[in-house]
Write a protein that binds this DNA or RNA. Structure first.
Length: 386
DNA sequence: AACTGGCTCAACCGCGTTTCA
DNA sequence: TTGAAACGCGGTTGAGCCAGT
């Protein structure tokens, strides 16, 4: 289990990539796919380690990477997901199409963290720094403390999903075209990671492959909009996930995952309830009831509701939910916090630094409403486990 | 013009996980 | 079953840029 020795080799170049190196790497991958990263540098005529090549490709050269400023919506999504998932950048990147985990991580560290800090919110815990401010709103404090629980559950959920994806890959591979099959099996089954889909050797154009890869799958659904540059679940992307969900309904494998998840969520629910959050979250006494509740709650989204009616929801639902929660005026909590979404930690946030506690409190309140709404929406039934 | 300090982000490092012989 | 190799993730670094003095 030792460290990968690839970067220890003497004579390998480090540091910034030159345009010539980029060109070589691009040309090679366009023609052959990356295959084994380890073997790639030699084959491509690069004096780099495979790891460096992979990083350069995933973070910079890939054709589907969106560069430039983050939109406000993206910022909010990052903040909300960070509150739920912590520093799981690849998982966060899953929900931000065309952004790399590295980019998100950098953006968080250089912009968002500071912004939250200025707002008086601890960027690590997402709890208000000044507890006194919230002392009159015990519910929010409890919400804050329970958030870490939620994050743990979400982690468990993601892991369960990853298992599901892993299984689905194996399953779908039997019915997929050989090239895609190669692509799916060839990727790592790691929960949060997989390399970019391998390109069929006959693929004439890289862009073409990226744009059409999904269509060759048995899952014709194009969820390529959800593709995330680096990511894990995203790359395998929604299609495999959805496939697995569809295929596993009623199957024993799915049942296993479901049971696991059910136990976790039941456990979580009790902790959650003990924490006084039962009013903020549509937990119900039975999974069926929960599903129905969520389907009803999500009535505004046909897709989501439909998915819930079948007991599962794809990643897409979660992402859309995040994004929609920023733009529409759904009010899922009694306070209707979603209505104020757009200003709490976006552009307007910097205007709240002057120590006005009322304003700060309002900011925090809105902020937490957002997160709680998010949790409402991305709650258990969101998971394929259900 | 020169210096300084802060900021940004590409790239590296080290570790944990997964794969495979 | 085991251990080495390969891979991917998150934390960290440092070169380059820019604004302020």
């Amino acid at each position: 289990m030792g460290r990968s020795p690839c970067c220890d080799k003497v004579g390998l170049k480090k540091g910034p990539w030159t345009p010539e190196e980029d060109q070589k790497l691009l040309a090679y991958i366009e023609e052959h796919g990356h295959g084994s990263w380890r073997a790639l540098p030699a084959k491509a005529g690069l004096e780099r380690c495979g790891k460096s090549c992979r990083l350069r490709w995933t973070n910079y050269l890939r054709p589907d990477i969106k560069r430039g400023k983050f939109s406000m919506q993206e910022e909010q999504t990052i903040i909300q997901l960070h509150a739920l998932l912590g520093n799981r950048w690849s998982a966060i990147a899953t929900h931000l199409p065309k952004r790399t985990d590295n980019e998100i991580k950098n953006y968080w560290n250089t912009h968002l963290k500071k912004r939250l800090d200025k707002m008086g919110i601890d960027p690590v815990t997402h709890k208000p720094k000044n507890d006194a401010i919230l002392s009159t709103t015990e519910g929010h404090s409890k919400s804050a403390s329970n958030l870490s629980h939620m994050a743990q559950w979400e982690s468990a959920r993601l892991e369960a999903e990853a298992r599901l994806v892993r299984e689905s890959k194996l399953r779908t591979s039997h019915s997929s075209s050989p090239s895609l099959q190669h692509s799916l099996i060839g990727t790592s089954a790691s929960s949060s990671s997989s390399s970019a889909p391998l390109l069929p050797s006959s693929t004439p154009s890289l862009d073409h492959a990226w744009n059409n890869g999904c269509s060759t799958s048995t899952v014709a659904t194009r969820v390529s909009d959800l593709e995330s540059p680096t990511s894990t679940l995203s790359e395998n992307n929604a299609p495999p996930i959805m496939t697995s969900v569809i295929e596993f309904v009623g199957s024993s494998e799915r049942g296993t995952v479901k049971e696991e998840g059910e136990r976790e969520w039941n456990k979580g629910f009790h902790e959650y309830k003990d924490g006084g959050m039962e009013n903020s979250m549509p937990f119900t006494s039975s999974l069926h009831e929960l599903t129905v509740t969520m389907a009803t709650t999500w009535g505004s989204s046909t897709t989501s509701a439909h998915a819930h009616a079948h007991g599962h929801v794809s990643e897409e639902g979660f992402t859309n939910l995040l994004l929609n929660s920023n733009s529409d005026h759904r009010s899922l909590s009694p306070e209707g916090g979603a209505e104020s979404n757009n200003n709490c930690h976006g552009n307007g946030s910097d205007g709240h630094n002057n120590g006005n506690h009322n304003e700060l409190y309002e900011d925090n309140k809105i902020y937490w409403n957002n997160i709680l709404n998010l949790m409402n929406c991305s709650s258990p039934s969101d998971s394929p486990m259900f």
